[in-house]
Structures are given as C-alpha cells and as structure tokens.
Simulated scan of single mutants.
Amino acid sequence: MALFIDKLAISSPDITALERFPVEFTADGGNAVPRIEFSGAPEGTVEFAIICHDPDAPLPNGFTHWVVYGVPPGAGSLDTDAEGVRVAPNGAGFPIYYGPEPPVGHGLHHYYFWIYALGRPVEGEPSREEFLERYGDAVIEQARFVAVWSR
C-alpha cells in the first residue's frame, strides 16, 4: 500500500497535541468525551474512522480507548449522535470513549488519535485490530495527533 499524506488533519480544542491530557478527559477525571475536529478530506472519501489508541499499554496490542465509524466525509467535527455514526467496542469491550488510565508508575503513555479517510464504508463495528486487517487497503489517507498521560 502506498503512503499518502496530504491535507487530512485531526485535532482537538480540548487536548493539545504533544501535551498532557486535561484530567477531565481521563478515567481519573470522569471520562469527558473530547471534541474532535478534522479537515482536508481527500477525493474519494466515503467515510472517516476515528480511533484513539495507547500503544504503551502493557498488552500485546496496546489498548484501544475509542473506535468510531461512519463519520461523514463532509463533517468537520465528530458527532457521535449523527446518523450513521457508530461507536464500536473499545479494548475493554464497551462501545464508549474510555479515557487514559495507565497503570500507576508505568511511565508516560502516548495516546494516538487517528483519523482514516476510507474509500469504502466499514460494515458493522469491528475492533481496531479487525478494522486495520479488513480495511487497511481502503485507507486513502490518514492523520493523527498524540497527547500523553501518566499516573
């Protein structure tokens, strides 16, 4: 698969890239759902997928905190209540956003918020790993921002 990086961008007015999460968006602070904004949909995008993943979690595949499918290509921000948008199970098996909660003393964890512009729609609500396996060839472009947290 060819690497394609152009204009697609993702950010949050609630979480500053490369800085610590505000506590209210962590499991310790109540798991408030951060606002997510994006722009630069490439031609051919039929939907976006958004995933928050912690590769530093002490598990073989890290820990997935949030999985969202069906985000319309014309949207500029994530609205999980919009028609067709689906929140799939996170690493704990629940279809919700679950904020950072790394093990105490485990050091700094990095939380990647990925956006994937897809050339075909995602069927159902696959896990992050299933999505990457089944839809990797449908990714037109991807972008991410990263924030950190430790306990």
Score class of each variant (00 low, 15 high):
1 M>L: 08
1 M>Q: 09
1 M>H: 09
4 F>A: 06
5 I>K: 07
7 K>V: 05
7 K>I: 00
9 A>S: 12
10 I>G: 03
11 S>A: 08
13 P>Y: 02
13 P>S: 03
15 I>E: 02
17 A>S: 07
17 A>G: 03
18 L>E: 14
19 E>R: 11
20 R>L: 11
22 P>R: 01
24 E>S: 09
24 E>W: 00
29 G>V: 06
30 G>R: 01
31 N>M: 00
31 N>D: 06
33 V>N: 04
35 R>A: 15
38 F>H: 10
39 S>R: 15
40 G>Q: 10
41 A>F: 06
43 E>L: 13
46 V>L: 12
46 V>C: 13
47 E>P: 02
47 E>H: 05
48 F>K: 01
48 F>S: 03
49 A>K: 05
50 I>C: 11
55 P>R: 13
55 P>A: 05
56 D>H: 11
56 D>A: 15
57 A>P: 08
57 A>C: 12
58 P>H: 15
59 L>Y: 13
60 P>T: 05
61 N>D: 15
62 G>D: 08
63 F>W: 11
63 F>S: 06
64 T>W: 00
66 W>E: 01
67 V>T: 10
67 V>F: 01
67 V>N: 02
67 V>K: 00
69 Y>M: 02
71 V>I: 07
72 P>K: 05
74 G>L: 04
76 G>W: 03
76 G>H: 03
77 S>K: 12
77 S>R: 14
80 T>P: 15
80 T>L: 03
83 E>H: 11
84 G>K: 09
86 R>I: 15
88 A>W: 07
88 A>K: 05
89 P>C: 12
89 P>W: 08
90 N>I: 08
91 G>R: 00
91 G>M: 01
92 A>M: 09
93 G>E: 02
94 F>T: 12
94 F>D: 09
95 P>H: 04
97 Y>L: 04
97 Y>K: 14
98 Y>E: 14
99 G>N: 04
99 G>A: 08
101 E>V: 02
102 P>Q: 10
102 P>S: 13
102 P>H: 06
103 P>I: 11
105 G>S: 07
105 G>Q: 06
108 L>I: 14
108 L>T: 15
109 H>M: 05
109 H>C: 04
109 H>L: 06
110 H>G: 15
110 H>A: 15
111 Y>P: 12
111 Y>F: 14
112 Y>K: 14
112 Y>Q: 09
112 Y>S: 12
115 I>K: 14
116 Y>D: 13
117 A>C: 13
117 A>V: 07
118 L>Y: 09
119 G>C: 13
120 R>M: 03
120 R>K: 14
121 P>K: 13
122 V>F: 07
123 E>F: 08
124 G>K: 10
124 G>D: 07
126 P>C: 06
128 R>C: 10
129 E>S: 10
131 F>A: 04
132 L>N: 00
133 E>G: 01
134 R>M: 04
136 G>T: 01
136 G>N: 00
136 G>C: 00
137 D>H: 01
138 A>S: 01
139 V>I: 10
139 V>C: 07
139 V>K: 00
146 V>R: 10
148 V>M: 08
148 V>Y: 12
148 V>N: 13
149 W>K: 06
150 S>C: 05
151 R>I: 08
151 R>G: 14
